[in-house]
Amino acid sequence: MTLFNLLFFAIAALIVASTVLAVTRRNLVHAVIYLIFGFFGSAFLFYLFGATFLAALMVIVYAGAIMILFLFIIMMLRVEAPEERLFPPRQLLPAVLFATAYVVVGALLLLQDATAVVPLPEVRTGPAAFGRYIFTQSWLAVEIASLLLLVAMVGALLVGKRPAGESEE
């Protein structure tokens, strides 16, 4: 059991535990806070896997921007503490069905694959190498992603704007 293994299993336990807690929370703010812990765990995992730039991006974009946007919306909408029944049976049944099917198929696939137990190498990709790769090999995808973000921003502005005829109440 090397330090690499120990760190991996500790981080995996952190991710799974915080995601389970987030999914089962009744209070939306608590769910978002737990999910932030889960995304921090993913950032640790990316760093462990040598993707240093992605680890930083995970903290900045996912935990820092997306989750805070969720928090803003939850606080803006004044969602009253709902007496929502967690996991109503009518929706739980298909979820359990699909989850068990998925888990069984995934476990079978993993057990079949003999190469799935080959230990992973320990390498690190610095931000410079990653940036050079992105901007030489997949620059078109970067352009498309930036265009998509622009379209999303325009769409959000249009949807968020009140219609011209509607007066402020």
């Binding site: 690499f4 293994n5 991996f8 230990p119 992973l120």
Partner: peptide, 8 residues
């Protein structure tokens, strides 16, 4: 060591 199967 940790394997790709664990990650998956």
């Amino acid at each position: 060591g940790i394997a790709f199967g664990h990650v998956l």
